[in-house]
Nucleic acid binder design. Structure first.
Lengths: 127, 127
DNA sequence: CTTTCATTCAACAGAAACGTTGAATATCAT
DNA sequence: ATGATATTCAACGTTTCTGTTGAATGAAAG
């Protein structure tokens, strides 16, 4: 038994998640993802508006790629980037699972309170 | 105008998000969050099962705290940690917003395809 | 008051990240 | 072939992270 707790996508030991969150932790990289919502783009296109060297952006793109957040398709001399929704979904899922757990606990607690005590005010924070 | 694009929680320039994702990028820190789902705990309790120095864990807790993912309440000589759902929610929201955007686009595209038949592809990537 | 417990702090070494520069590679255009 | 374009790669300096150690602080217990 390997203690596969708390939804770290099976297989990797959470390294996928490590890279995804590390990738998202940089504002430039988040900006790249947002830029790609407008449609696929070459690295040149992405780099143009950014206050950074082309090589710098190229690196960031590499990080996003190996985090599984973008896909690259090489077309001759130009590399086209596109979003990879599954990647972000995976990152979102871990968070979702945590918050779901909390909600469940919160609900259970609320239910228990509602059962055993004089209900203070429906819906309102019971203070 | 400051280009408040794409849901970076107003006020900070995304630094809150930076820290949250950076915090989540570390497996030890994620483990701490998971551990806290079982209930509030002192740093000693959290450190016990981890293959790391107490001081090391203390540092990680500090990171989680300044990322807004946990709350600390000092009680005499012991520090009790609890989860801070709003923190994770904020991190989750950015991701959710992105994926929502994609879904909307995907839906629109699907609808268009269904309506107009062999439309090649909007924008560049015409294969 | 002295000891134990819970925690931080400071200094350190090693590793990784960020961005730059200059050179290398491969593709397209003439 | 020549030259321009799109991109990576390697090396570098700086900064930030990770974890350790040893000392310092402060509260509880004896």
């Amino acid at each position: 038994m390997v203690e596969e707790h708390a939804g770290e996508g099976p297989g990797d030991g959470g390294q996928r998640l490590d890279r995804a969150y590390a990738a998202l932790a940089d504002p430039t990289r988040r900006a790249l993802l947002v830029a790609l919502r407008a449609g696929d783009a070459r690295i040149t296109d992405l780099a143009a508006p950014l206050p950074m060297t082309f090589a710098g952006v190229s690196r960031h793109v590499g990080v996003l790629e190996s985090a599984g957040l973008v896909r690259r398709s090489v077309r001759g001399r130009e590399h086209w980037l596109s979003l990879r929704p599954e990647g972000l979904a995976a990152a979102g899922d871990w968070i979702a699972e945590q918050t779901a757990f909390w909600s469940r606990r919160a609900d259970a607690l609320a239910a228990r309170l509602a059962r055993t005590a004089p209900v203070p005010a429906p819906g309102e924070p019971a203070r």
